[in-house]
Design a protein around this nucleic acid. Structure first.
Lengths: 239, 239
DNA sequence: CATAAATTCCCCATATATGGGGAGGGGCTA
DNA sequence: TAGCCCCTCCCCATATATGGGGAATTTATG
C-alpha cells in the first residue's frame, strides 16, 4: 500500500463519517494503516468545550482529565505558540511538572517519539493532531519525512469534519460590527484608553462610548474585555 | 508534468528561498507551473504588520492599499470566519462596498474564479493564500478537485517560511504566566468581573488584583484589556 | 422614498479599575 | 541554603468605565 492510497483511503473514510463514533473509528484505523503506536485528534477548544478522538487507553485519558494535564502538558503549551508541526524531542521537558507528566505518559504506553500539529480555526478553535510511536530517532526521521504532508492534510480535514459534526450551526451568520465599532474594539485591544481612542478617531469620548456600548450589546458581551475577546475570536476585528 | 512534481518543485524552491524577493519569485513561478491567472500570499497580520507576495499588478495593489480594501474585502472578512478553503462564489457580494470592490477587481484583471485559504498562526498571525483564474465553473471545479490539497500544503509551508524570514526572532521565549495569572486572564476574557472571579477562585479580590497587576507587568500591557488580548494572541491562555 | 442603521453629540450618578504602597509563608532551583 | 517566584492578604486615593436616559444628521438598504 503506497502513500497516496493511505491518504486517499483516509479521506474517503472521512467522507462517510457523520458521528463522533465514526471519527473515533477513523482515528483507530488511521493508526493501523500508518503503523504507528497512537493517533490523536484533540480539540482543546471547540467553542469552549473539549473533544477528543484517540487511541490512548481510557485509563490514561481519565487520569489526564482528572489531573488537568491540559494545563501542564508541554505538548499543548508548545503547540499554542507554534505554527509548524512540533517534534516532541524539541519541547522543554525540564521542569518538574513536565518530567512527572512524561514519566506517567511513558507508563501509559505512549511512544517515545511523536509530533503534534497545531490546528487553529475561527471562534478560538484550537486542536492538536498527534502521531506517536516507539522507535529510534532515525526511524522516526524517516517516518516524518515520508508522512508529514499526509498528516498536515489529515489534521486539516479531520478538524473540518469534527467541527461540522460537533457544531452544526457553527456557520451561522456573524453579528456584523460597524466600521467605527470595529476600530474602537481594535484600539481597545491595543490597550488604548477611551480618551486616546477618541482623540485618534477624532470624535468625542461620549461618541466613543456609544460604539463600545453598541458593540457590547451586539455581541452579547458582559463588559468591554468580553466584547474585545469575542470580537477577536469571532474574526470580526484584526489586531 | 504531473501533480507530485509540481508540488515537489515548489517545496524544493521554497527550501532555497531566504529573502522576500525569493518569495515573490516563488509565487510567480507557482502561478506559472499551475497555469492559473494569479497566486497570492497575503499576510494580513504578521505581528501587526502586513506582508504580501503576489502576482497582481502594482497598480491594483496600490489602489487596494490606498482604499484600505483590507477592511472591506469580502474575501478577507469571509476567511476570518472560516477554516476551510473558501470559494469566492460562496461569498456575500451583495452590499454596495463589495459590489464596487468586485467591479474594480475585475477591471484590474483578477480572475472570475478563485478560492482563498485562511492561515492562522500564533501571535495573532493571519494570512491568506489565494489562487484565482479565468474559466468556467466546471473547469474551476476540476482544478479545485485536483489541486486543493497541494494548495493547502503550499499555504502552510509558504507561511512558515515567510514567518522565518520576516520575524527571525519570532521564536523567542514567551513570558510565562503563573497558573493563577492565566486563570485570571481567562476568566476576564470570559467577561467575568473581579468580584466574580475572586469568588470562583476562592481568593480575596485583593489577591486577584495582584495577579492582574503582575500579568499586566509581565506582558508589558498598558491595561487589563491589553493584557488579555496579548495573553490570548500569544497562546498563553486558552479561552 | 421610507425605513433602518451608522455616526455624532450631551448629562448624571454609581460602580469598577488602577497605581502606589507593604507583608508573610511556601515551594522550586541553582 | 539562599534567592527567586508564587500565592495570599491589606490600605488609600484617584482615574476610568458603566448604566440610564435623550437627540440630531448623514448614509445605506429594500
Amino acid at each position: 500500500m503506497d502513500t497516496v492510497t493511505k491518504l486517499e483511503q483516509f479521506l474517503s473514510n472521512l467522507e462517510s463519517s457523520n458521528t463522533p463514533n465514526d471519527i473515533q473509528t477513523l482515528v483507530t484505523s488511521l493508526r493501523d494503516s500508518y503503523g504507528v503506536t497512537n493517533a490523536v485528534y484533540h480539540a482543546v477548544n471547540l467553542d469552549g468545550a473539549p473533544y477528543a478522538a484517540l487511541t490512548y487507553t481510557p485509563e490514561w485519558m481519565d487520569h489526564y482529565q482528572e489531573q488537568k494535564y491540559v494545563q501542564v502538558d508541554p505538548v499543548v503549551r508548545g503547540a499554542l505558540q507554534q505554527f509548524h508541526p512540533m517534534d516532541w524531542k524539541r519541547l522543554d521537558w525540564s521542569n518538574r511538572g513536565s518530567r512527572n507528566f512524561l514519566g506517567e505518559a511513558n507508563d501509559a504506553g505512549i511512544g517515545n517519539q511523536g509530533f503534534s500539529i497545531p490546528i487553529r480555526g475561527p471562534n478560538g478553535q484550537f486542536a492538536l493532531f498527534t502521531i506517536n510511536d516507539n522507535c529510534t530517532d532515525q526511524q522516526w526521521e524517516v517516518f516524518r519525512k515520508e508522512f508529514l504532508r499526509d498528516m498536515l492534510l489529515i489534521s486539516h480535514f479531520i478538524h473540518n469534519k469534527v467541527v461540522k459534526i460537533m457544531l452544526p450551526d457553527g456557520n451561522r451568520a456573524q453579528t456584523p460590527l460597524s466600521p467605527r465599532e470595529a476600530d474602537t474594539l481594535k484600539y481597545l485591544a491595543h490597550g488604548m484608553s477611551r480618551t486616546n481612542i477618541a482623540g485618534k478617531l477624532e470624535i468625542s469620548e461620549h461618541t466613543l462610548r456609544v460604539y463600545i456600548d453598541s458593540a457590547r450589546h451586539k455581541l452579547g458581551a458582559l463588559n468591554t474585555v468580553h466584547a474585545v475577546s469575542l470580537a477577536y475570536t469571532k474574526g470580526l476585528i484584526l489586531l
